[in-house]
């Protein structure tokens, strides 16, 4: 009788542990798929680097770009944070962009899960905002020979919601 009870409770524990592992696995699956369906990123095959590489190294990439931009003035490469935001920002039904650092959105979904604090958005914009300046002004300044098409194809291209190229 006693043995039976022990076996029974042991099985219960095992079952509970199994259920827990299964749920953790399910959550891990979700983590792998945080690209929002409404974002531009959902429509492209890969990020600017292979997905696996970006998952592990995106911070190194962003930080390297940060110094290049601040000290070297190079803003147009594919590793810019503005590009990350532009491509990964999700949109609600009415087409309004949702802040990437809001709960459940691209950046914070994963960062909350991994319990890693983000500092980027203390200062940086969480939705593409004011980018139209580049677009409009560059058009006005067309005589300067700025290649609009090349810029639009870049990751820090101006925000135009219908654009799906990356």
């Amino acid at each position: 009788m006693a043995i039976k009870a022990i076996t029974k409770s042991g099985l219960l524990v095992l079952a509970a542990a199994g259920a827990f592992l299964a749920s953790a696995g399910a959550r891990a699956e979700q983590v792998g798929d945080f690209v929002l369906p409404s974002s531009k990123a959902a429509k492209v095959e890969n990020c600017v680097e292979p997905t696996e590489y970006m998952r592990r190294n995106h911070f190194e990439v962003i930080r390297h770009q940060r110094d290049t931009t601040v000290y070297g003035g190079i803003r147009s490469t594919k590793h810019s944070l503005a590009g990350c935001v532009d491509c990964h920002v999700g949109y609600d039904e009415s087409g309004q962009p949702l802040s990437v650092s809001d709960e459940g959105q691209f950046c914070s979904a994963c960062h909350d899960y991994a319990a890693v604090t983000m500092n980027c958005f203390d200062c940086h914009a969480t939705v593409p905002e004011g980018e139209s300046w580049n677009h409009e002004t560059a058009a006005l300044h067309g005589h300067l020979g700025i290649d609009l098409a090349a810029r639009a194809a870049g990751p820090d291209a101006p925000a135009h919601r219908e654009g799906s190229q990356q």
């Binding site: 003035g73 503005a82 203390d122 905002e129 560059a138 300067l144």
Partner: peptide
């Protein structure tokens, strides 16, 4: 905040001579 002009509590800033324009070649 604008994408071209990051801004956050606790830091100091000043005129950049519109550095974002310069970097775009404008």
């Amino acid at each position: 905040k604008l994408t071209r002009a990051p801004r956050g509590k606790g830091c100091v800033e000043s005129c950049t001579l519109c550095v974002h324009r310069l970097d775009e070649g404008d």
